[in-house]
C-alpha cells in the first residue's frame, strides 16, 4: 500500500426511507501528476488515484473517473438517496493497484 493513505468519510448514521443525504469524502494521497520533475530534472512518474466509487447495498451512487488534475488529498461531495437501511461502501483505486475502502452503515430513522 502506498504510505500514508487515509480515507475520511462524512455520512449520516441514520436516514428516513427515500431521504437524500449529503456525503463528503476525503483521502490523503499525493496525486503525483506525472508533470513534475525532480531536482535532477527527471520526470516524476504519475501516481494517482484514478477512480472513486460509492455504492449503497451494491447499487451505484456515483462513479468518478479521475485525472491528474484532481488536487492532492482528493475531496468529493455529492448526494445519495437512501432507500433502506444498509451499507454505503466507498472505494478508491490507486494507479499502483492498491484499493482503499471504507464502509459506513446507515440505519433507518
Amino acid at each position: 500500500m502506498a504510505s500514508g493513505v487515509r480515507p475520511r468519510v462524512k455520512a449520516p448514521r441514520s436516514a428516513e426511507a427515500g431521504e437524500v443525504v449529503t456525503i463528503k469524502t476525503l483521502i490523503s494521497h499525493k496525486m503525483e501528476s506525472g508533470q513534475r520533475k525532480d531536482s535532477d530534472g527527471n520526470v516524476i512518474p504519475r501516481s494517482i488515484i484514478h477512480r472513486f466509487t460509492c455504492e449503497f447495498n451494491g447499487t451505484s451512487v456515483i462513479d468518478v473517473e479521475m485525472q491528474p488534475a484532481i488536487s492532492t488529498n482528493p475531496y468529493f461531495e455529492f448526494e445519495a438517496k437512501i432507500p433502506e437501511a444498509g451499507d454505503m461502501v466507498f472505494t478508491w483505486y490507486d494507479d499502483d493497484g492498491d484499493v482503499y475502502t471504507e464502509t459506513k452503515s446507515v440505519a433507518m430513522a
Binding site: R6, R8, K24, N73, Y75
Partner: peptide
C-alpha cells in the same frame, strides 16, 4: 471540519 483537509492529518496524528 470536513471541508478542512488539515483534519485528515489530525486523524493521522491520532494514530
Amino acid at each position: 471540519d470536513f471541508d478542512n483537509s488539515g483534519m485528515i492529518f489530525v486523524d493521522e496524528g491520532m494514530a
